[in-house]
Amino acid sequence: MKALNSSNMGGRSMNIQMRESEGAIHGKKGTVDHGNYVEVPVVCGPGVKEIASGEHIHEVFVVGPDGTQASLPSGIVVGEAATADIIFIVLPGVKQDIPLTVDLVGEGSTVHLAGIYLCSGNDHVTFDITMNHRVGHCVSRQVFNGLAANASKAEFFGRIVVAPDAQKTEAYQENHNVVLSDNAHVNTKPRLEIYADDVKCSHGATVGRLDEDAQFYMESRGIPEDEAKVLQMISFVAPVLEYAPEADREALATRVEDAIRHLSSV
């Protein structure tokens, strides 16, 4: 088995980073041990969403202090040649675990999971994601960016499992975080378990602060301190919004911006 949980510094050109981990595996015959793979049952139960073969879903879940409009799925089972695009927006004022297991059981499917989390006060948000590539020829992409202010805690556990027969898998995961106060905590743990040998997988995780040079540059142009911070925070999470359905994007961007403005004033 090759479990990758590296923490090599350098590489990515994000100037906000303090520490980061990054890894990549490109399929090369003979580099992967096929042992140790334990097949667990496909998720089932009331919180599980089934995406039929050929079906396409694109959903947005906004989690706010008053809960979510629709209940969050705990599992997603994706059939053949299907697509699932899911974006989570976690607003300030939330204490919640968000566990999610995705089982790719049919070939030729694509899953995008995206998320923005804006934690403030004593918020505690935990994403616990398992992406199971059980069959080959599927693509999964995860992009989660979050901010942690005040005494909040944000955690991201992201596991990618590629079964021995899941050849030609592509699985990517990015998790980037900005810590806005000394009392805020971020914990990011990517984990790649790759049992197939012809795959493309990578993960990147960073935890950093706002860029002081960018901050001064903006202030020197007459942008007040708070506004400059807001601009940096918005530009940090904005790329994730590209994963939202086009029709919802602007409204979501506005909600995120409002939440960020509120964050920076607390």
Binding site: D211, I223, P224, L231, S235, A238, P239
Partner: peptide
């Protein structure tokens, strides 16, 4: 300095309007 994610237009608009607001 590079400011990823902030366009020149947005940057300048914010700068000019911040001054006007002040």
């Amino acid at each position: 300095i590079e400011i990823p994610g902030v366009s020149i237009t947005n940057f300048m608009k914010t700068a000019i309007n911040s001054k006007r607001k002040a």
